[in-house]
C-alpha cells in the first residue's frame, strides 16, 4: 500500500489503471448512463424554454394592444425575405448534424468543414437580422415607437443573441479541432453544441410562425 502511494509522490506520472477516479475526464460513470454534461445541456434548455416562453407571451400580450401606432406588423414584415433567412437557419441544422456524423466516424477534416458551414449559415442569418432591423429603423420602428416595437426587438434580439453565442461556440470548436483536441472519443463535445444549435433553430420556427406568419 505504501509503495503504491509513494509511487505517486515521485512525479507527475499518469494514474495507474487501478486508480479510483472521482471525476474521470473521458468516460465518467453515471447513475443513468447519460453523460453529465449532456444532461446539464438538456436541463439548461428546459430553463431556456421558459425564457423564450416568457418573452413570446409578452409579445403575444402586447401585439394586440396598439394597432393604431404605425408601423404595424402587417405593413412592415417582409415575409418572403424572412422566409429565406429562416430557411438559411434551418439549413444550418442539417450541416450541424453532418458535422456530428463526421466526427462520430472519425473524420476530423470533414467535421471541421461542416462546422464552418454551420457557423457561416448562422452568420448569414445574423446579417439578415441586422439588415431587417436597420430597415425597420428606417421605416420608423424602434424600441420606443410602440409596444409592438419594444416586444418585437426584445424577442428577436434575444434569439439573435443566442445565435451569435452559438456561432462563437462553433468557431471555438473549429479552433480546438485545429489544435487536435476534438476526436472521435469526445464527439460528445460536438453533440452538446449541436443540442444547443438545434434548440435555437427550433425556437426560430416558433417565433417565425407566431410573430411573422400569424401577424393578426
Amino acid at each position: 500500500m505504501s509503495q503504491a502511494v509513494a509511487e505517486r509522490t515521485s512525479g507527475a506520472a499518469p494514474p495507474a489503471a487501478s486508480t479510483t477516479h472521482a471525476l474521470e475526464a473521458e468516460h465518467p460513470h453515471t447513475s443513468t448512463g447519460v453523460d453529465s454534461r449532456k444532461m446539464l445541456m438538456w436541463a439548461f434548455l428546459a430553463s431556456d424554454c421558459m425564457f423564450f416562453g416568457t418573452l413570446i407571451a409578452t409579445y403575444m400580450v402586447y401585439k394586440q394592444r396598439q394597432e393604431l401606432i404605425p408601423p404595424v406588423p402587417r405593413e412592415i414584415f417582409d415575409i418572403p425575405y424572412t422566409s429565406v433567412s429562416a430557411f438559411v437557419l434551418l439549413l444550418s441544422s442539417v450541416t450541424m448534424v453532418l458535422a456530428l456524423d463526421a466526427i462520430q466516424h472519425n473524420r476530423v477534416a470533414r467535421m471541421r468543414t461542416w462546422l464552418i458551414a454551420t457557423a457561416l449559415l448562422g452568420s448569414v442569418f445574423l446579417a439578415g437580422q441586422y439588415y431587417e432591423f436597420t430597415s425597420f429603423f428606417s421605416e420608423g420602428l424602434n424600441l420606443s415607437t410602440s409596444l409592438f416595437g419594444s416586444s418585437f426587438f426584445l424577442l428577436t434580439g434575444f434569439h439573435g443573441t443566442h445565435v451569435a453565442i452559438g456561432v462563437f461556440w462553433l468557431l471555438s470548436l473549429v479552433v480546438q479541432s485545429w489544435r487536435g483536441k476534438i476526436t472521435q472519443a469526445n464527439a460528445l463535445t460536438i453533440e452538446i453544441a449541436g443540442l444547443y444549435w438545434h434548440f435555437v433553430d427550433i425556437v426560430w420556427i416558433l417565433i417565425f410562425t407566431l410573430v411573422y406568419l400569424i401577424p393578426e
Binding site: T58, V61, Y62, R65, Q66, N142, L143, S144, S146, L147, S150, S151, L154
Partner: peptide, 15 residues
C-alpha cells in the same frame, strides 16, 4: 426607452 410598463404609452403594469 421601451414602454413595457409605461401606462401612458399603453404598457401593462399587471404584466
Amino acid at each position: 426607452g421601451t414602454n413595457f410598463f409605461e401606462v401612458a404609452k399603453g404598457g401593462d403594469v399587471i404584466l
